[in-house]
Simulated assay, not measured.
Amino acid sequence: MDSRKYLALSLCFLFLFPDLSHSNIQLPGWLGDNKMQGSVLKLKKGVSSATFDPSRVTQLSWHPRAFLYKGFLSDEECDHLINVARDKLEKSMVADNESGKSIMSEVRTSSGMFLRKYQDEVVADIEARVAAWTFLPIENGEAMQVLHYLHGEKYEPHFDYFHDKENQKLGGHRVATVLMYLSNVEKGGETVFPNAESKVSQPKDDDVSDCAKNGYAVKPKKGDALLFFSLNPDATTDTRSLHGSCPVIEGEKWSATKWIHVRSFEKPNKQEGMGGKGDCVDENENCPVWAKAGECKKNPLYMVGDDGKCRKSCKVCSS
C-alpha cells in the first residue's frame, strides 16, 4: 500500500471517527499487527512499540482540525528529550517563501535541534506512537525537532504547509503536525490559532496571555500533545491552520515537533533509473489499474503532475 492510501486511511478515521473511546474495532495491519482492544490501539514496528488510547483525545476544533492528547508522553520521556537536546541547541530557522532555503528571521526567536530518527529506544517509541495516533506512516515524518523558548521568545503565526515548490519535492506538503509539550510554562507560551472558527467561543481565564486572546489557544502542559492538520480533506491547504507560539512571559518552554508529509520523507521521489529526467516509467505497480479506472483525469496531480507517479500508464510520456 502506498502513501496515498495511508493518507486516505488516516483521513477516514480522524475525520469520520474523531472519538473512538467506546469502539471495539479490529484494524488491518500496515506496520505489523494493529488491534483495537476496547479503547487501546497497539502498534509494533521492529523493536519499538506504541499504545494509543483514544479516550485521552479531545477534539478541540474542526476548522482547523485539531486534537489534544492528554498524557501522550510520560515525564521521563519529556525529560529524556530535553536532556538529549540541551547541549546541541542552535538558533531556529524558517523556510524562505521564495527559495525554500532555511533562513534566520525575527518571527521565530527560539532555539532548537533535530534528533535523528530512531536514534534511541525512547525516540523510536515516540515516533511509533505518533504513527499510531495519526494513522500516517513513520516514513512520512521528518526527524523530531526539540525547541526551547526563554523569556520573550516566540514564533509568529505561520503555516506549516509550504509556499515554495522546492520544499514540496521531498514528501510534498506537510499534512499534519504533532506538537508535544515537554514542560509546563508558568505564563505565556500558548499555541494560538488566530483563524480558528472557535476562537470567539473559547472561554479565556486570567492566566492566559494577551497573545492567546487573539485566537483559539492551547496552554502547554508537560506530556500533552497537540495534533492539527494543515491540509483539508480534499488535500487543499487550510488557511485556518495558521498558528503561532505566544511569547513566554514567566518560566521557559520546551516542546518537540513532528511534521508529517503526504508522502515518504525518507527518499527522493525521483530515484536514479526510476522516473528521472528522460525516463518514462510508472513508480507504482498499481498505475495501470488506476489509469484504466480514470484516475489520470480524476487525480492528475498524483498521476501525471510534475512529480507524477503514473506518467507512463497515463501516456503523457514516451518510453
Rank of each mutant, 00 (worst) to 15 (best):
P203C: 01
E139I: 13
N214T: 05
S183P: 08
F159N: 13
A143P: 07
G215R: 09
V146S: 04
L226W: 07
T177F: 03
A196I: 11
V192K: 13
E121L: 15
F229E: 10
Q119C: 09
F193A: 02
L136P: 03
F193E: 02
L226N: 02
S201H: 06
D234S: 12
E153A: 01
P220Y: 10
M144E: 04
A128C: 13
K187S: 01
K219C: 00
H151D: 02
T134S: 13
K222L: 14
I138T: 08
H163K: 15
Q168P: 05
L231I: 03
L182S: 14
P233M: 03
L226Y: 08
E186Q: 05
K187L: 02
G141H: 10
Q119N: 01
F193K: 07
T177S: 07
A131K: 12
S230E: 12
G141I: 10
S230Y: 11
G215S: 05
A176N: 06
L147N: 01
N184W: 06
D224Q: 13
G172K: 02
L182R: 12
G172C: 05
E121M: 15
L150G: 06
S183T: 06
R174C: 01
F162G: 09
D164K: 00
E166D: 00
D234Y: 00
A212G: 06
K222S: 15
A131Q: 00
V200A: 04
I126W: 09
V130Q: 12
F159W: 15
I126T: 15
S183G: 04
V146G: 03
T134F: 05
D205I: 05
A212P: 03
E156P: 00
K117H: 05
E197T: 12
E139N: 15
N232E: 11
I126H: 11
K199S: 07
E153K: 01
F228V: 12
D224W: 09
M180R: 04
V208R: 07
T134N: 07
N140G: 05
L147A: 00
K222Q: 15
V175Q: 03
Y181R: 07
G188T: 00
L150R: 14
A132M: 10
K204Y: 02
V192F: 12
A176Q: 08
L179V: 06
R116F: 02
E186M: 04
G189M: 01
K221H: 13
P233T: 10
F193I: 04
D210H: 04
D210L: 08
K117V: 05
A217P: 03
K169F: 00
I138F: 02
V178A: 03
A128K: 08
V200M: 04
W133F: 15
L115C: 03
Y118H: 15
V208P: 04
G141F: 10
T177P: 06
E156K: 05
V192N: 11
D160P: 10
D125C: 13
L115M: 01
D234R: 11
V192W: 11
T191P: 06
A176V: 12
